[in-house]
Write a protein that binds this DNA or RNA. Structure first.
Length: 403
DNA sequence: TCTGGGGTCCTAGGACCC
DNA sequence: TCTGGGGTCCTAGGACCC
């Protein structure tokens, strides 16, 4: 083990009030005024609106009550995607080690640049200037030894700020902060901690790991204990592909026609399956999401034996799960329906190529023989009865691997 | 305060296998 | 007759993030 010098070389770059800032950039009349992007609910609020109490996910009526001169504009997602692309281009110009977190924030590892570029704090300042000059948007950057600390630093420095946490000042920075500012502590955990009289990160740091695990469970307890003592990964994670694809739709208060709900669900299935195919992936698990008039939620899922990319398979399962949820829907009243695809695999690996009626074991063997005769025996990598008796899938290796 | 749409990760019980 | 444990998958729910 060599002692690496402890350096603050992770940047967390986070665009401020992103959607609202794009609107203010593109329409000078909105600058300096409280702006909310959205309609029924607030998707994003400018800082002028936030200072008056307007928050993301707040209902439009309540937002106007808090801030009567609020300017509400409809979202323009194409403009946000384009602005994001331009900002990420600057990120990648800064360092190859970029971990996108969402449309408006990313971690950048600049540790490898110490011989060829200026110090991390100066890189962060330059990055902020470039985003402002080239894209016209304010961005806050936190700089620290770990992504966790950089993230907390950018939260503290918002809006339009820059904060560096030197490695030997980490505890002095972190421990006075309220627990709500810790990344990973949401309403439930913060409420639980405050219920025990723990209001700051320092209060939490005074607890043993054992006590914290007892309070919050193993994962959250270990994680929180580690981060308040400065133990967190020092690395960004690049090149990770997404694990699920989903879409949902609020239906409004019912009652809703059965045919209307089914049509809405099929529309969502079509959308996610298009995205699935565009990503060259298949899915093994379909999850139906439901939300009810009393704001309770339910999920119902089904896993295929093999990945599928076809809308027909997904639609059949989604409708079956919806039918099975009939009693719940009638009892509580449906207000939202969604579908999510997970267990995503590369579509080069699993391709069902044969389907038989009334499948049984001998049918499976015949199918395997048929595929082996046509593509060669090494082409058959997996074969089994599809769940639900829909047929038989014989996946092939990717092109070129089966010969 | 009556709530949009897109995600990630963890927990926990039961089935099933060795 | 009484007695194990470990691992993985599936399903459902929940916390958290932006």
């Amino acid at each position: 083990m060599t002692d690496q010098p402890r350096r603050a070389a992770i940047l967390h770059a986070d665009l401020d009030a992103f959607y609202a800032a794009v609107e203010q950039r593109d329409d000078p009349r909105l600058r300096g005024r409280p702006v909310a992007v959205g309609g029924g609910v607030v998707l994003a609020a400018s800082y002028e609106a936030k200072w008056r109490g307007v928050q993301t996910a707040m209902g439009g009526r309540q937002a106007r009550a808090l801030c009567p001169d609020l300017v509400v504009v409809p979202p323009r997602f194409d403009a946000y995607v384009e602005a994001s692309r331009a900002v990420f281009e600057i990120f990648h110009r800064t360092t190859p080690q970029v971990q996108g977190v969402s449309i408006d924030e990313a971690f950048l590892d600049v540790a490898g640049l110490h011989r060829i570029d200026v110090a991390p704090a100066a890189i962060a300042a330059r990055l902020r200037a470039q985003v402002r000059d080239e894209v016209g948007l304010p961005i806050t950057v936190g700089v620290a030894r770990t992504p966790f600390l950089a993230k907390v630093a950018s939260r503290v420095a918002k809006p339009d700020g820059l904060m560096v946490v030197p490695p030997d000042e980490e505890d002095a920075f972190l421990h006075p902060l309220p627990v709500e500012l810790l990344w990973g502590v949401g309403d439930v955990t913060a409420g639980r901690l405050r219920g025990y009289g723990l209001t700051t990160a320092g209060d939490v740091a005074a607890l043993s790991q054992q006590v914290l695990v007892g309070l919050l469970g193993p994962a959250a307890g270990h994680h929180l204990h580690a981060v308040v003592h400065g133990r967190a990964s020092e690395h960004v994670v690049t090149g990770r592909s997404r694990g699920s694809i989903g879409a949902q739709r609020a239906l409004g208060r019912g009652p809703h026609d059965d045919a209307f709900v089914r049509a809405a669900l099929l529309g969502l299935v079509d959308r996610v399956c298009r995205r699935l195919r565009a990503a060259h992936r298949t899915t093994r698990t379909v999850t139906l999401r439901l939300r009810f008039a009393d704001y309770t939620r339910a999920t119902r899922s089904h896993s295929f034996r093999h990945g599928t990319g076809t809308g027909r398979d997904v639609a059949a399962v989604a409708l079956r799960l919806l039918d099975a949820s009939g009693p719940l829907v009638r009892e509580r009243g449906l207000t939202l329906v969604g579908v999510a695809l997970s267990g995503l695999e590369s579509d080069a690996v699993v391709q069902p190529v044969l389907e038989l009626d009334a499948p049984d074991r001998s049918g499976l063997d015949q199918a395997v023989d048929a595929v082996a005769a046509r593509f060669g025996s090494r082409a058959v990598t997996r074969a089994s009865l599809l769940s639900g008796g829909e047929g038989i899938a014989v996946p092939l290796l990717p092109d070129g691997d089966g010969t």
